[in-house]
Design a protein around this nucleic acid. Structure first.
Lengths: 322, 322
DNA sequence: CTGAAAGCGCTTACAG
DNA sequence: CTGAAAGCGCTTACAG
């Protein structure tokens, strides 16, 4: 910039004004500056700019999610990115891999880099460690899971409502023995889905297997449930991978056309499998967009946005009870 | 930091040394500084640090891909992120949506923010616009597609080799009328896959439909090909969405067990569909890791890394010719 | 409308 | 081993 000022024969201040389009500059001087900029291939240093400007805005935000390559979270990411870009803001991302320590590490580093805002899908049980960043003026929105021990905005899916809809759907087809297969209940979304299941059971028996962490665990749990003396006639799987495990188990037993199945979370190619997989779909892109919107419209009072889910009937959930 | 120095009763320089762990500091002074840091909740400003330090490294890199929520690219992203994190480096990401203008815009903004490196899956036809960034010392690696009109590293899949393997697989089962369904040939990967197809045909008839941009176009092309007087007995689909369109078309005709199908790119749940979908799988995570490795080990000569593909037989590709 | 000067928060020769 | 001082590239009152 010093160089540009020299070549254009003006002061640093004038170059800054022209480059930023701020303040009035005589047209001929502005033209000389533009010329010098082009001639020298000058590009302004945004980090230096951030350091000096009054509002200290860096035009960057950060997103902390479980895994950038998980389809659910990458759709959230896209939503956040789109809102950020519409405001000329760049997005950092980090994968926590559900490791509390890594979440804290990432939040700290992003904070030290001076991001203007933070969107977090937390895996820690307590986010009060973020109090300092919050007070230093970083906007903060939680997504997918609400914050604990800190007052901040949150955008979540209607987990309990979606689970209720799934179970009511199965009940309307005559099912009474409906099993729930869920993730670790320490995960907020998992316990919410279980809550919806319990609420909708209407006095039917509680048949549940939880703490299932992957597709294999889901498969094993289904094999076990169906071997019971009085097995369930329908399954409600509380998560993507568990749904896939359940399908594998039903296939192995050749019972995919007998036992009803509704899964939480949409499954790619769910309509090409036989029978098609009925699911309660979340809308992760909207989750991300809403989080972005809240981030850029700070409020004193913590807000909570609940994004609805949608039941998509494709066949597996429409198998009637015998 | 000034505040910390004041409270600890030392100079700014000493605080800087302690906080950075550089240079020797008398233990008692160091302890006083640590105490003041804790007391004040001090956190060092990384952007100011970057501005002043000799190497001007910002410990951040940027990734430009088509879409962060596309499963292929999000796996690439994860690979890059993992390598970056292992070096304490943060990752920016941007989606170009295959819009040349947006790619340039993103590259420019990342450059102005002083990232140390740039990983790009280019959609522009000419990347010479990046010459300036390259000369300013930003490390640069292209991924998925090689650079044009600029000398830089690249990490790509063995597109032609994978396509050859697919077609040879079908030929070994007796197929001679093998159709190729491909994306826009202006896309490097699409034309490479077509090249592999042509090379492996061994004099068989060329039956191709290209410029297919989505799953519907793939479906329509398959319906059209199979309606020919002398239709293909096998299909080689050059991309994910086209594969899905082809499956839908075969389903509609009830011919999914008669016409062989091999797709390029793996498909989620490909083993749960009937028949299972045989694919030539890429390894996007490795693509990302390799790109990251090259980025952090700069070389004067441009390098090219080719990541192998793998044929995964699941049923649809093992239907013999009649 | 324009420029000289101060200063954002930090690092780094330099002298002691 | 430690500190005073210069300066990274920029923005912004302030005076003219």
């Amino acid at each position: 910039m010093k160089e540009v000022a020299r070549v254009a024969g003006v002061s640093l201040a004038t170059v800054s004004r022209v480059v930023n389009g701020t303040g009035d500059v005589r047209p001929d001087l502005a033209a000389r500056v533009q010329e010098a900029v082009k001639l020298l291939g000058y590009r302004r240093d945004l980090t230096a700019s951030t350091l000096r400007r009054a509002d200290r805005q860096s035009a960057s935000i950060a997103l902390i999610i479980e895994d950038v390559s998980n389809p659910f979270f990458s759709a959230v990411h896209r939503g956040v990115e789109d809102i950020a870009r519409s405001r000329g803001v760049l997005t950092f991302v980090g994968s926590s891999d559900e490791l509390p320590e890594r979440e804290r590490e990432l939040a700290e580093t992003f904070g030290a880099r001076g991001v203007d805002g933070l969107v977090i899908a937390p895996c820690t049980q307590d986010q009060s460690y973020l109090q300092r960043e919050l007070q230093s003026g970083i906007a903060m929105v939680f997504v997918d899971r609400p914050p604990r021990f800190i007052a901040a905005d949150a955008v979540v899916s209607d987990n309990a409502g979606g689970a209720r809809a799934a179970v009511e759907h199965l009940r309307s087809l005559g099912h009474r023995r409906i099993a729930f297969l869920g993730d670790r209940l320490a995960v907020w979304t998992a316990s919410e889905r279980r809550r919806g299941y319990l609420e909708a059971l209407g006095g039917g028996p509680v048949l549940e297997r939880t703490e299932l962490v992957d597709s294999d665990a889901g498969r094993a749990a289904v094999l076990e449930l169906l071997a019971l003396p009085d097995p369930p006639s329908a399954l409600f799987t509380g998560q993507n991978l568990i749904t896939i495990g359940a399908i594998r188990a039903l296939r192995e037993l050749g019972r995919q056309h007998e036992v009803a199945l509704v899964g939480f979370d949409d499954v790619v190619l769910g309509d090409l499998v036989e029978p098609g997989i009925t699911v309660v779909a979340q809308d992760p892109y909207t989750l991300g967009c809403q989080a972005g919107e809240l981030l850029f419209a700070p409020s004193a009072e913590p807000r909570r946005v609940v994004v609805p889910t949608a039941l998509i009937a494709r066949g597996s959930g429409e198998i009637p009870a015998v």
